[in-house]
Design a protein around this nucleic acid. Structure first.
Length: 577
RNA sequence: GCGCCUGUAGCUCAGUGGAUAGAGCACUGGCCUCCGAAGCCAGGGGCCGCUGGUUCGAUUCCAGCCAGGCGCGCCA
């Protein structure tokens, strides 16, 4: 017999079932916590499920099951209700035992047993071509919270950021920086409209001048523009022409600028994320996939397996044979691999590292990408079901009731850093995960800043601070609360709080299984609400010593659970505010 | 056109094959000589987009329609 009421009840029901309907002994028994207190602590629809196969009325079946149910000290009452539900009311001692459990386990309360499942969680992975904006913030908050939740649920989680350091976007950034730098020396090349406009590019140019003076300014504007397509004719070709000239004119120095810009932006990004409480175990370089030959190997492997054909000089992956709507180019006519090719290699690498589950968190705009990546995995002979893609809808920022633009290239964006400064990390992290990730999120900056005291995060933190305050006034030793007699807890609110605490480990498991950290946020809101309600109804610092200790122990258990939950969301649990 | 997401209270959103569908905001009225009023208590407010199907039971699952958002490059 288990001490966990849920498992205990399942055992009891299974025993009863074996005698009532031995043929159906294998049926899965679900026990849920009823929404209504009058329906007891746990409820099962077992009789309703079996009514049809056994050709008996649900209520009759429920009565039979109830009659065969072994007695238990932990069960106070069993009732048949409604259409045929069997409702269980636990003995008070079984309900209040959780207080001691929480206090004894402390920060570990709610943590699931080690599952041994190795999970790779890749998220953010924004191009290091400029500051993170509020859209990236959501992916960061969601990914970090999900990683924490899955880790807490018992999985071995690796957090990874894929650095797109090999593509054209990085070349555009390097070019942009160089052009700004040249301008500092009076070499005025018209700045392309589709280059990176942001002030941070000018800042980097300034740093280059400080450190290297005129080292990279040994050419004229005419050199830079030599043979370049007119911007009015084709602005993308114009950009590519400038990049080609930059590479030719600068030689090895081009790589220096490229790497400088990359290091600066990636460092900025990393610092920003760390400030946001978002940490990674690995920063995985796209470029390394080319350097180690993995991209070529991945494409060769597809070719060997007969999934590649050549058309118009390019190599195409026959992804349409693997569920994609059409075939995709992996190697262009000019010999360069596409982004898709390096992504195939990246996923091959992820699989080769031996994870049980590979989770990609992508912006919802990438959803069309899923079939081709999954298809490539299948084509490589790997199990595609190991890959799971969690799509995060974009966060749309509203300011003065209007959408705020968020294009990195135009330079007109609201950065994550600005948002964090205005709103604060705690409210930001909480706000981001308050919505289901696949829902559009309207982030109202005016509301979040001017009326931040209305943010639900404060409601939860306030509950935590209140407990801290009461415990401070009590002034005793926290350890003594472990010896409190929980049987002193008898009111409906107190028992309700105990049930809520007992549900925390289940909330963690559910949030992990559904990839839904917002469930933790809602759990915490409920827990804080029930605490505030109790706090206003009953005093803790009462004359009766035993009662006071029991109530303080419950309060301390609430505080611990709030802290554990907030930690999963990356939100602080202040002792005063 | 095709694909994905969404439609629940005035607004922003949870939720569930099951019992009387919830919260916050907003609105109305109460509660600080009393552990923190960033709190609590009470009240109004709903064809859970529409139609059909599966089911003992559908707001939930399936199909079709209506409405909104996003995505559909030899870009990344």
């Amino acid at each position: 017999m288990s001490a966990d009421p849920r498992l205990l009840l399942a055992d009891l029901l299974r025993t009863a079932l074996a005698s009532v309907a031995p043929d159906h002994a294998g049926v899965s028994i679900t026990l849920e916590r009823p929404k209504q207190a009058s329906h007891g602590d746990f409820s099962t629809n077992l009789a309703l499920q079996l009514a049809k196969p056994l050709r008996r009325s649900p209520r009759d079946l429920a009565a039979l099951l109830m009659a065969e149910l072994p007695a238990s000290m932990l069960v106070a009452k069993v009732e048949i209700a409604g259409a045929g539900f069997i409702n269980f009311t636990l003995a008070t001692a079984a309900k209040t035992a959780v207080v001691g459990t929480v206090l004894a386990q402390g920060a570990r309360f709610g943590r699931g047993a080690d599952t041994g499942v190795k999970v790779l969680l890749e998220f953010v992975s924004a191009n290091p071509t400029g500051p993170l904006h509020v859209g990236h913030g959501r992916g960061a908050a969601y990914g970090a919270s999900l990683a924490a939740v899955m880790d807490f649920a018992g999985h071995a989680v690796s957090r990874e950021y894929y650095v797109n350091d090999a593509g054209r976007q990085m070349d555009i950034l390097a070019l942009s920086t160089w052009l700004r730098y040249l301008a500092l020396f009076g070499i005025e090349v018209p700045f392309p409209p589709n280059a990176y406009q942001g002030a941070y590019v000018v800042d980097m140019a300034g740093e280059m001048r400080s450190a290297h003076e005129a080292r990279f300014a040994k050419c004229t504007a005419a050199d830079v523009l030599a043979g370049v397509t007119d911007v009015a004719a084709d602005k993308e070709a114009h950009l590519d022409g400038l990049i080609a000239n930059a590479k030719r004119l600068l030689g090895q120095d081009y790589l220096w600028i490229h790497d400088f810009a990359l290091t600066e932006q990636l460092g900025d990004c990393r610092e920003d994320l760390e400030g946001f409480g978002v940490a990674f175990d690995t920063w995985f370089s796209e470029k390394s996939l080319f350097d180690t030959g993995l991209v070529a190997r991945a494409v060769a492997e597809l070719e060997k397996r007969g999934h590649i054909y050549v058309q118009d000089g390019a190599k195409w992956f026959r992804s349409s044979s693997f569920g994609d709507e059409k075939d995709r180019v992996v190697q262009r006519e000019n010999g360069l691999f596409t982004y898709f090719a390096s992504d195939i290699a990246y996923h091959l690498n992820k699989y080769e590292r031996g994870f049980d589950r590979v989770i990609d968190i992508w912006g919802a705009d990438h959803h069309g990408y899923i079939p081709r990546v999954r298809g490539a995995i299948a084509a490589l002979g790997l199990p595609p079901e190991k890959l799971e893609v969690a799509l995060v809808q974009f966060a749309v920022l509203y300011r003065n009731g209007q959408k705020a633009a968020m294009s990195t290239r135009s330079g007109e964006f609201v950065t994550l850093r600005d948002l964090r400064t205005d709103v604060g990390n705690d409210a930001c992290r909480f706000f981001y995960v308050l919505r289901k990730s696949d829902q559009h999120l309207d982030f109202d900056l005016d509301l979040a800043t001017s009326q931040s005291n209305e943010n639900p995060v404060y409601y939860i933190q306030y509950a935590h601070a209140r407990v801290c305050s009461v415990l401070a006034q009590w002034g005793g030793v926290a350890r003594d609360l472990l010896d409190a007699d929980a049987a002193q807890l008898a009111s409906e609110r107190e028992l309700g709080l105990c049930a809520r605490l007992a549900a925390f480990p289940e909330a963690v498991q559910s949030a992990a299984a559904d990839y839904a950290p917002h469930q933790i946020a809602f759990y915490l809101k409920d827990l804080a609400g029930e605490f505030h309600s109790w706090y206003n109804a009953e005093r803790m610092l009462v004359e009766d010593e035993a009662q006071m200790m029991a109530r303080l122990a419950l309060a301390a258990a609430v505080r611990q659970t709030l802290a554990n939950g907030l930690a999963l969301l990356g939100v602080s649990a202040p002792s005063s505010m």
